[in-house]
């Protein structure tokens, strides 16, 4: 290794400290990995959001590069295709100076029958520092984390968790509303299959928001109310007085009579249109993790309308992922502290 690297990094980073409101070296997370919102405390979430807030400003400058992760190797391991999450992590790593490598299932030996753990051991032998993983099965990130010696970031495992999405959603809300506590936040749509919904429920409830779940019964997890939020099957009821509406994507294969009868029926009763939005507070934010099905879960004029912060969510995504990479790197051996 390069024993001087942390010193050099610290020296370069010192210049930036003045620009940032947060302590550049203080530990933010107690765990090595970010596997879900589940394990995060209120103060960890707040500090991550504060750090991400700083990165938002840096990302808006002409010079977006920081040497925070110089010398670090960051691997994106995506077993499920994803354009936006993968490119967001890639950009975050690159802006922080890491060497970023993308591995997707199609070009790897995973598609040749190698197991998840074989892949993990192979990658581990290359000494990565940060491993971002997306997998179609719940618990895959956890399993991987047990077998590798680097920091693992869950970029979505099955229908379990997608912590960076929840963090970027929280950051977006906090920037507009100035807080999370006591906001009425309606999460609407395919909650059953959504890792975004699970991470958001955990994060928003932990931060003191009043979370509502709004979905037709077949798209609600069993005993949904036991997760904590209020549950609504009529969208009109669930949206009344909401400060924030989070729409979820409905996968094509779930709208042809298997979970809901059809796209047109879904749009009629669970699509966000002007009439339904009018039931929420006038300053209600409209969010969507993307990619959107226009005319299925959301009307085009709402997605592009004045209350929509959907594009801003994408911007916040890069900042949040920079904050997560930075925070986890601080805990690594030889990291700044």
């Amino acid at each position: 290794m390069h024993p001087q690297a942390p010193l050099a990094r610290r020296a370069r980073a010192g210049y930036e400290v003045a620009l940032m409101s947060t302590d550049r070296t203080a530990a933010i997370l107690s765990a090595r990995d970010l596997l879900g919102i589940e394990g995060l405390s209120v103060s960890e979430i707040s500090r991550l959001l504060d750090l991400a807030q700083d990165y938002v400003e840096i990302n808006r400058r002409a010079d977006k590069k920081l040497p925070v992760l110089r010398g670090r190797t960051h691997i994106n391991l995506f077993f499920e295709p994803s354009t936006r999450t993968q490119s967001s992590f890639e950009l975050a790593g690159k802006r922080l100076g890491a060497d970023v490598m993308n591995m997707s299932v199609k070009s790897s030996s995973v598609s040749k029958g190698e197991t998840l753990l074989d892949t993990a051991m192979t990658l581990n032998a290359m000494h990565p520092d940060l491993l971002v993983v997306r997998h179609q099965h719940s618990g895959a990130a956890e399993l991987l984390a047990q077998k590798v010696s680097c920091a693992v970031i869950n970029a979505g495992d099955g229908r379990h968790e997608h912590p960076t999405q929840a963090l970027l959603d929280a950051l977006t809300i906090r920037r507009h509303k100035g807080r999370l506590e006591n906001l009425v936040i309606a999460i609407c749509g395919d909650i059953l299959h959504s890792r975004v919904a699970r991470s958001n429920i955990l994060l928003l409830m932990r931060m003191g928001a009043q979370v509502r779940l709004v979905a037709p019964s077949p798209l609600l997890p069993p005993d949904a109310q036991r997760l904590g939020p209020e549950v609504f099957t009529r969208m009109e009821d669930g949206l009344e007085g909401a400060d924030v509406i989070m729409m979820l994507r409905l996968q094509l294969e779930r709208m042809n009579g298997a979970f809901v009868p059809s796209a047109r029926e879904y749009y009629r009763f669970h699509g966000l249109d002007g009439a339904k939005l009018a039931l929420a507070r006038p300053d209600c934010l409209v969010m969507h993790p993307g990619p959107m099905n226009r005319g299925v879960e959301i009307a085009s004029e709402i997605a592009d309308g004045a209350q929509s912060v959907i594009r801003e969510q994408v911007e916040m995504g890069v900042a949040v992922r920079m904050a997560v990479l930075d925070a986890l790197a601080r805990n690594l051996e030889g990291g700044p502290s």
Binding site: G257, V260, P261, R264, F269
Partner: peptide
Amino acid sequence: ITRGLKGREMSETGL
């Protein structure tokens, strides 16, 4: 209940 009475896909209950 199901499209075409085929027992596979639910019909458009609400509509």
